[in-house]
Amino acid sequence: MNSAKISSVSYYLPERILSNSDIAELFPEWSVEKISAKTGISTRHIAATDEFASDMAVNAAKKLFHENKIDPNDIEYIILSTQTPDYYLPSTACIIQDKLGVPTSSGATDITLGCSGYVYALGLAKGLVESGQVSNVLVLTSDTYSKFINEADKSVRTIFGDAATATLVELDAAGESISGITYGTDGSGAKSLIVPNGGLRKGTAISPRSEPMLRELNSNGYDLYMDGPDIFNFTIKVVPEALGKILTKADVRKDEIDLFVFHQANAFMLDHLRKKLEIEDEKFIVSMSDIGNTVSSTIPIALSKLVEEDKLKPGMTVLLLGFGVGLSWGGMVVKWR
C-alpha cells in the first residue's frame, strides 16, 4: 500500500521586525514586560507593503528546493493554506505554480484555513499520495495577517506575525508515517475570530462586537477582530478531546509521543494546555517568542526549528494539533522519517 511521509520542511520570514519596544511606544500603558508576560512574544515579522502571500510562499518553497536539492519540475501538486490570498480570484496556488516553474501538468489549489490549515493540508496531501493520484505534494502555508490588523488595536497587534512555510509530502517505502488524523469544525464560533470588512458580506452581521466603532477604532478596511476569552474557552474544551481521539486512532499511548507540537497561539494558552493535559515540559514545544503567532505556519516553523536544533530526529514520534479560526481544529501523529 502507498504511504505518505513528510520529507522536508522550510520556512520564510519577512525582513521587517515589530518588537515589543515598538508596540510599547505606541501604547505606553502596555510595557515591554507586560506584552512579553501576556503573550510570550518579544518580536514578530511583518510583510512589506508590497509583499503578499504568493511572494512569501515562493520564497519558502525556493528555500526548501535549495536546501533539499529538489527540482521544481518534479513537483506534481501544490496545496496552499492561506486566509490572505493575493486576490479573490484566481487561486493564489496557481500564481505560485507559475512563479516556481512547476510543470503545468501539476495540480494547484488553495484551502482557506488558518490555525488548523497545516494539518488539513497534510491530510489532503496524504490522501492524494496514498490514492495514487500523485507521488508528491508541495504543501505551502502563507499568511499576512498584519495587513488585516488595525494598527490601533493592540489586542491583536501584539500577537500575530507574518510567515510562510514549505513542506514536501511524498511516497514512503518504509510504511505509514502519518496516522490518527482527526478533524473538527464548529462554525457557530465564526464570530469569535473574523475580518468583518473587505469581503463580500459584512462580518458585523454575525459578529456585532467586531464593529470598529464599538472598539473605538477608525476602520482600515479590514479590522481583524478576535474575542480572546471565547477562543481560549473553545481551545480548552476541544484540545483535550481531540488529543484523545488522535491517540486512539493512531493506536499509540501518550507516553509514546516524543514531541507535542501544537499551534503556537500564545504562551499563556500553551502553558495552560500543557498543565491540563499533563505533558512533560521537555516534550511540549513552545516556539514563538521571536516570530509570534504565524497562523497556519506555526506548526511547520516549529518542526523546521526542531530539525535545525537537532531535537527532531528520524524515528521520533510527533503529535501535531492545530486549532483556532473557523472555528476549526485538526491533528495527527507523524513518525518522523
Rank of each mutant, 00 (worst) to 15 (best):
T204K: 01
D143F: 01
L168A: 09
V139I: 11
R201K: 14
G175T: 08
S105G: 13
F148H: 04
T185M: 14
G198I: 04
A108F: 14
S207T: 00
A121P: 11
A125H: 13
P90M: 11
T204E: 06
D172M: 06
Y118D: 02
S188Y: 09
G180K: 01
T112A: 12
A93H: 10
G184K: 09
G203W: 00
D98H: 15
S207L: 00
Q133P: 00
G123P: 10
S192P: 01
L193A: 14
A173F: 07
T158D: 11
V169N: 01
I194N: 02
S188K: 13
Y183R: 10
D143Q: 06
I194P: 12
G187K: 10
Q97T: 09
Q133C: 10
T141Q: 06
G189C: 03
I149N: 02
G198Q: 10
V119F: 08
I96C: 02
L122N: 04
T104P: 03
D110C: 08
A166R: 03
G187Q: 10
I96P: 00
G123L: 05
T167H: 07
I95T: 11
I206V: 12
G189P: 00
G198V: 02
S106N: 06
A166L: 05
P196Q: 01
G198D: 04
R209N: 12
D143A: 01
S91D: 11
K154W: 14
S146W: 00
P208W: 09
S188M: 12
D186Y: 05
R157V: 08
A174C: 08
A174G: 12
A190L: 13
K99C: 11
A121H: 10
R201N: 11
F148Q: 02
T204Q: 05
A125M: 11
V139D: 04
V139C: 08
Q97N: 07
T109R: 12
T167V: 15
D162M: 05
A166P: 00
A93M: 07
S210M: 04
R209G: 08
T182I: 14
V119I: 10
F160I: 05
G180V: 05
D110S: 07
S177I: 07
G114R: 08
N136W: 05
L122K: 03
A93N: 04
L193R: 04
G117C: 00
G175H: 04
